[in-house]
Design a binder for these strands. Structure first.
Lengths: 144, 144
DNA sequence: ATAACTGCAAACTATTTGCGTTGTC
DNA sequence: GACAACGCAAATAGTTTGCAGTTAT
């Protein structure tokens, strides 16, 4: 069900090209690292992971680049309780569990909600589409 | 369906008492102002509104107090796209529409989701309970 | 060639904290 | 009267921005 890294990279390159964005090594590495990540890293986490291969990379470039990607609709910023923003490459529609103890973010799918239509009253309030569910609680590890 | 201000204040005072928190004028005013607010103000917004009646109030007290209330479970911090946190007094279970243009937050009820049980796979991941839906889009005003 | 992108340093915004004073219980 | 909570000022964390040099197209 998941997209392969290869497909994601292709999609990434196409998106850059179609939006007239330059394909720089930094952008490529940042995208690749985020696509491979299974957790939902913050800009800072991602930056540290990238440092190994790209010692000259700067944190501001990571921030700037993630911002660009988010605007392009290639990745999304995840809302959390903390102040730090978390990021993920857009994949299949999914929702998030957030552990209030360790702040871990876990993806899950919930077709029932994906397919549900929003209450009618909303029609008059504007045009609303993308819906995500956030469920708060405590993860298995923290329970032990 | 909404709780009256009076009831909310009662609940507030009880909560303070039962948790051994002192009932200071600042706390009372902050809670009252937030309970009356129909938008979902940030700490800063709330602070400015309170300044009229309590010119000596400080912004850090507002932050500190909102933090305390949230820990007590009296109010909740709303996740948004922006960096600034928004707050609301806990009322009936509801969800949020967020306008991506003007960042407005609109409450709505969606019983269908409230009553839905989470997918089974989640059982093994931990204990997760409170679920909220966030729907992104554009509000009526911004569409015009 | 040239406009976009990067890295650096400095700025900024939201929020938190230490400390001496004040006010509630 | 004791101790929690306040107001002040200063610190911090996360993120953004201006600028000069570099690089992809």
């Amino acid at each position: 069900m998941e997209l392969t890294l290869k497909n994601q990279l292709k999609r990434f390159e196409d998106a850059c090209r179609s939006q007239g964005l330059r394909l720089t090594p930094q952008r490529l590495e940042i995208f690749k690292k985020l696509a491979q990540a299974t957790d939902h890293p913050t800009a800072e986490k991602l930056y540290h992971r990238l440092m190994e291969r790209m010692p000259t990379l700067s944190l501001d470039t990571v921030y700037r680049t993630l911002g660009t990607f988010a605007e392009m609709g290639l990745i999304s910023k995840i809302e959390t309780i903390e102040s730090q923003a978390h990021f993920e490459v857009l994949d299949v529609q999914h929702h998030h569990l957030i552990c209030e103890q360790c702040k871990k973010i876990i993806d899950f799918e919930w077709k029932q909600v994906d397919d549900a239509t929003l209450p009618d009253e909303i029609q008059s309030l504007g045009r609303f589409e993308r819906k995500t569910v956030v469920v708060y609680g405590t993860c298995q590890e923290c329970l032990e």
